[in-house]
Write a protein that binds this DNA or RNA. Sequence first.
DNA 1: CAAGATACTTTGTAATACGAGGTATAGAAT
DNA 2: ATTCTATACCTCGTATTACAAAGTATCTTG
Lengths: 111, 111
Amino acid sequence: MFERELLKGSLGLMLMALLEQGPMYGYQIAKHVRDQTDEVIDLKEGSLYPALHRLEKEGMLEAFWQRREDGVDRRYYQLTAEGMRVLTERRAQWNRFSAAVSKVVSDGSIQ
Amino acid sequence: MFERELLKGSLGLMLMALLEQGPMYGYQIAKHVRDQTDEVIDLKEGSLYPALHRLEKEGMLEAFWQRREDGVDRRYYQLTAEGMRVLTERRAQWNRFSAAVSKVVSDGSIQ
DNA sequence: CAAGATACTTTGTAATACGAGGTATAGAAT
DNA sequence: ATTCTATACCTCGTATTACAAAGTATCTTG
């Protein structure tokens, strides 16, 4: 009920940052994030897939289907050129923002 | 349209962290945050006051009116004991969360 | 054959930042 | 005198969005 709200606004950024390293598919992304953050961030399907579709519609990502030998279809997402450009902006914005919050939140002993 | 979403979930935390240092009133809080974060975070009244009321209702804050000599009323907010306890939790949660996001978001060269 | 993991989808709901509007006072500028 | 700016509070409606929950389908493992 609180953790949930923290993610708002940074999920899209995280997805774009991940896909900067190369195309990935949904399930893979979720696992990657879960592992890389020691389960601090556990992307739920109800957030992940809508977020990917949203970014695709905004032109940040492009998607393509790929069938595995066993017949399982996977939808891969990759960052567009526009997505790359916007990622740079949002990364900087996140850094500014998180530094600002941390400054206020870390107790007065620093100030 | 994006910055807005980043704030979700961390506004309450920031307010509680500020009030840890002593009672403050709404306008003062907004100015303090704006100054302390070099205007990165600019709390709007439509967010600030509802957030304060919310925290009050949740028992995190207590409020009292105080009249200045010139007749202007100010509503001061202070952290409750329960608020103090919850603040500790949320502070830790924010640190975990922001570290996790930063890890994913900072490019692959670190990994 | 049942159970779990993999893999994607959609619908409805709850939470919340903020725009925009409102009220009221004090002091400075025109 | 009046307008403007700053201070100081409030509330309603809207947009956004994470997620729970449900569904579909395949493959592997017990």
